[in-house]
């Protein structure tokens, strides 16, 4: 799984490279356009375009029926029933292409999220670091006492705060200057490293790193999973949420991504000769 992540990370790093220093909206526009370009042919070749055309025409016909015979309650009720029926048919015909589209969409979604959900720390900013032990009851009291080290460029501002019998340990770190730095978690004679990014640019971030596993590797591709044999279940750096300014409004990237993707989809529908 880590190999697949390396491949995808490299591809998306190349894609987003021109947008790392500009406003987030440009990168989001680009990935939305790319998503629309990928999704439209998938939709075209995995759906029954003729049937979709027929069903949509039937829906339109019944909508016209509603307008033309608005005084005849019997026809109106029948038209409404038919609109509902053909809508169901339409949904059925779109279900298959949507299943096919979901695979690249989820990959794109995850790799966009690791760039636009959070932003790197700025110099002078603080963040909470949280480490969770996998099964603290199986560990001795000494082994539950995690030790955090930080590379130059980061400082640890608080002593450890251990809660729930040592299951969770918290620290607060501070970014001193720009760069890519390392936090080391010493747990049961084994050190686990986590990357911390301090930058003003858009970058691939992994807020949380989990124990090795297919699901965790797939959904948290920003950094390699925690190594086998570690006592840790997860480590987390609370990066600040990224703000995306869209004509003066702060909008969550996901909403903007869907709006833009749909928008590009509709614009490119005709050139791609796709019936949605």
């Amino acid at each position: 799984m880590n190999f697949i992540n390396i491949v995808f990370n490299s591809l998306f790093d190349i894609f987003f490279y021109p947008f790392r220093s500009v406003d987030s909206i440009y990168g989001l526009c680009a990935i939305s356009l790319f998503t629309a370009i990928i999704a439209l042919p998938i939709f075209k070749y995995t759906s029954n375009q003729e049937e979709i055309k027929r069903v949509k025409a039937r829906i339109m016909g019944h909508i016209l029926e509603l307008r033309l015979f608005k005084d005849d309650i019997r026809i109106i009720l029948s038209a409404q029933k038919n609109i509902l029926k053909f809508n169901m048919f339409y949904l059925r015909y779109t279900l298959k292409p949507l299943m096919f589209m979901m695979i690249p969409m989820v990959v794109i979604f995850i790799h966009t999220a690791v760039r636009y959900e959070y932003r790197p720390l700025h110099p002078g900013e603080s963040a909470i670091v949280k480490a969770k032990l996998h099964n603290p009851n199986e560990l001795s009291i000494k082994d539950r006492e995690l030790v955090l080290t930080a590379s130059e460029g980061l400082s640890i501002e608080t002593p450890p705060l251990r809660i729930d019998g040592g299951k969770e340990t918290y620290w607060r770190i501070r970014a001193e200057r720009e760069g890519i730095f390392k936090l080391g978690f010493q747990a049961r004679d084994m050190e686990v490293a986590k990357r911390v990014l301090v930058s003003g640019k858009v970058a691939r971030l992994s807020s949380e790193t989990l124990k090795s596993g297919i699901v965790s590797s797939f959904f948290y591709p920003g950094e390699p999973s925690l190594p086998e044999g570690t006592a840790l279940e997860s480590v987390l750096v609370t990066y600040p949420h990224a703000k995306i300014n869209f004509f003066g409004w702060n909008i969550h990237w996901l909403i903007l991504f869907f709006i833009l993707t749909l928008g590009f989809g509709f614009i490119l529908m005709k050139p791609f000769n796709v019936r949605l």
């Binding site: 608080t158 002593p159 450890p160 705060l161 251990r162 809660i163 918290y170």
Partner: peptide
């Protein structure tokens, strides 16, 4: 609020 047993720190 959660506090550490020994260290003067609180979450």
């Amino acid at each position: 609020i959660k506090v550490d047993n020994n260290n003067p720190v609180a979450l």
